[in-house]
Each structure stands twice: as structure tokens, then as C-alpha cells.
């Protein structure tokens, strides 16, 4: 049998869990990991400490590139797959290189969701997903006194905490899209607001942005924003952080022939419509009879498990994803499910 070339798109926890299993199970195969980020595999949840400069970048690294060399794994960092041709089993990279695979594992994760209603001024939003965002955020913070947080998700709560600790004013706008994909009841919303207020953030409930205008910032050469809302408030701030959750990063798979809904549709073996293509982690959309719904994983542990399951199946075993264990973020007594999000709620 000709030797396999496993290509993994993504270099997060799901990808790395899979890579370990693949290397172990098929020592002579070619393995290539392609990641959009030009930075080795790192702890994403520690990004806020990079923002606050409590940690240096290299302190959040899980695995340095040397690890991959030792394991005879080709690590392609900072490279973006633009198109997948399943018939030719070829990936087309943004820098115009082709990569051929025999089996493909998609661990391309999520990307910050910007609701379409905000498209007109989306370029004024600052997002935090990857390390480059954290760097940018950190850099921008230098000239920032007042931050407007819109949306609201797990990351935003942590960042708010960090910002307040760094002595910045935080204004939190909880609108109808906040805490997507959860639907907040009025009660929970009020509770959130109270807790945020207790921490020192200012909270606006039940309002939404209708326009953002860039204006000169407090320091020369910086820029600030004038934000208008549905309730005709005018808010001045130096930075607008957008936190509307993550959506699977699957746009490059459109018209590849894979089934894409919100995420990549896979069965409970994490196999896609194409027998040589699997998906794991935050980009996979899985039907789970136990919860009677499609689900998309959230969180480190889920992603790791899914990565392993996918890899085992790629090696010819038969592992199933199973139901995710329920775990919750305890935000001072308020429980938020951090295990998965349902596609429809």
C-alpha cells in the first residue's frame, strides 16, 4: 500500500491530539499540519495574560516547532488553505502552492462571529481569537482609556476582568445577540449585568449599536470611536471589542463537495461525506442522538477528545464521538454551558 499522507488543517488542540495518534499508529506515514497562525500550538485561554503582559508569548506555547521535526511532521505555519479539491485530493494554499493528501483532517476551528447586522461598521471592531489579535489588542490598549464591549461571550468576560485589572474603563453593551448562541432570559441578563457592575464595569442592557464613527483619539495619532445606539445614546470610547462567539471557520470549504451547514457535517465517527475527510474540534457539526440535536464542540477537552476519535478512525479503527460531557463556566454562581452549542435553540 502506498504510504499515506495525512494532512491536518489547523494546529489547535484537536489537531495536535490527532497528530499524536496518527504518528503513533502509522509511524512511516507523511503528516503535514497546516495552520493559518504563524505561531506554534499555544494555550488559547492564556491569551488574556499576554494582553495584560503577565505572560510572555513563549510562555503560552504548548509545543515548539522542534517537536514536529522530531516526529517527522511537516509543520506549515502561517499558511492558509483557500480551496479543497476532493476529486484531486489537493489543497490550494493562498500563496499559490498545492498540497496533495491521501487523508484529510479538518481541525480549522472557529472564527469570531460578526452578526451580519453589524457588517457596515465591522472594520471598527477589535476581535480576540488568535495570538496576532492579542498582540494587536495589547498594542492598541496603550492609548486606550475606555473600552466598549459588545456582544458577550466567555472570552469577553475574562477580557473584561483583565481590562479592569489593568485600570481601563469598561462599558458592556448587552444586546440581543449577546451570549450567542445562548438565548438569555431577562432574568439571567439582569444577573449578568449586576455581576459585571460589581466588578466595576458599566453595563447597558437591551440596546444595540446602530452606527460607529471613527474620531480622533485621546492621544495624538490614535483613534477613538463615537458609537450611536438604537436608544439614541452616544458613547465615546477608544476601542470597540466585539465578542459574538465563534462560528466554524469553514468558508474555504464551500463548493468543495463537503456538506457544510454551520460547521462541517460529520457522522459520529467524525467522517464527512467524503470517506477520506474527517473533521474534529470546533469546526465539526455532529448529530448527537443523546441531546437530540446537532452540536458543535466548545472547549479544550472536547476538542482533544474529538481529535483523538477522528485520528483513530482515520487509522481504520472505529471510535465514536459520543455525547459531550456537560461542563459549565461558573461565573459567580451563574452557570453557562461551555461544552457545546446547539445549532438551533
Amino acid at each position: 500500500m502506498a504510504s499515506e499522507h495525512y494532512v491536518i488543517i489547523g494546529n489547535g488542540v484537536a489537531a495536535n491530539a490527532a497528530v499524536d495518534i496518527l504518528r503513533q499508529g502509522d509511524p512511516d506515514s507523511r503528516i503535514t499540519v497546516i495552520s493559518r497562525e504563524f505561531f506554534p500550538f499555544y494555550y488559547r485561554h492564556k491569551l488574556r495574560f499576554v494582553i495584560s503582559e503577565e505572560l510572555q508569548e513563549d510562555q503560552i506555547v504548548v509545543r515548539p516547532p522542534a517537536h514536529y521535526r522530531e516526529q517527522n511532521i511537516r509543520l506549515r505555519l502561517g499558511q492558509e488553505v483557500q480551496r479543497v479539491d476532493l476529486k484531486e485530493k489537493t489543497l490550494y494554499l493562498k500563496h499559490m502552492e498545492k498540497v496533495h493528501f491521501t487523508r484529510l483532517l479538518l481541525c480549522c476551528g472557529g472564527w469570531p462571529r460578526i452578526p451580519e447586522v453589524h457588517y457596515t461598521y465591522r472594520h471598527h471592531f477589535t476581535i480576540v481569537k488568535g495570538l496576532s489579535h492579542a498582540r494587536e489588542f495589547k498594542e492598541k490598549l496603550a492609548g486606550v482609556k475606555r473600552v466598549l464591549m459588545v456582544g458577550g461571550d466567555l472570552v469577553s468576560l475574562r477580557i473584561t476582568e483583565t481590562l479592569l485589572r489593568m485600570g481601563r474603563e469598561v462599558l458592556f453593551l448587552i444586546d440581543r445577540d449577546s451570549f450567542w448562541p445562548l438565548t438569555l432570559t431577562d432574568e439571567i441578563r439582569t444577573e449578568f449585568a449586576e455581576r459585571l457592575t460589581k466588578h466595576g464595569a458599566e453595563v447597558l442592557i437591551d440596546d444595540e449599536i446602530t452606527g460607529i464613527e471613527e474620531v480622533a483619539g485621546i492621544e495624538e495619532g490614535t483613534s477613538g470611536y463615537e458609537v450611536t445606539t438604537r436608544r439614541e445614546k452616544r458613547i465615546s470610547c477608544d476601542l470597540v471589542g466585539a465578542f459574538f462567539g465563534l462560528v466554524p471557520n469553514v468558508e474555504f470549504l464551500f463548493s468543495s463537495g463537503l456538506d457544510i451547514d454551520r460547521g462541517i457535517l460529520v457522522d459520529d465517527h467524525l467522517q464527512s461525506r467524503n470517506p477520506d475527510v474527517y473533521a474534529a474540534g470546533d469546526c465539526a457539526q455532529i448529530w448527537n442522538p443523546a441531546i437530540n440535536n446537532y452540536w458543535v464542540s466548545i472547549g479544550w477537552e472536547n476538542a482533544r477528545l474529538l481529535g483523538e476519535v477522528a485520528a483513530r478512525n482515520m487509522l481504520g479503527e472505529s471510535a465514536t464521538a459520543g455525547a459531550p460531557k456537560e461542563s459549565a463556566l461558573d461565573y459567580e454562581g451563574l452557570k453557562i454551558n461551555t461544552s457545546w452549542w446547539h445549532i438551533y435553540d
Binding site: 504563524f38 505561531f39 516547532p65 506549515r76 505555519l77 499558511q79 499559490m96 502552492e97 498545492k98
Partner: peptide, 17 residues
């Protein structure tokens, strides 16, 4: 570049930390 090249024929593919 204007045309796709084969695997390992683009220098961008070799740039690493």
C-alpha cells in the same frame, strides 16, 4: 504569483518560526 505551483515549490511553504 499568478499560477499554482506543486507541493514544496513555493518558498512561502518553507517559512517557519
Amino acid at each position: 504569483p499568478p499560477n499554482y505551483v506543486e507541493e514544496d515549490e513555493a518558498i512561502a511553504g518553507f517559512i517557519e518560526p
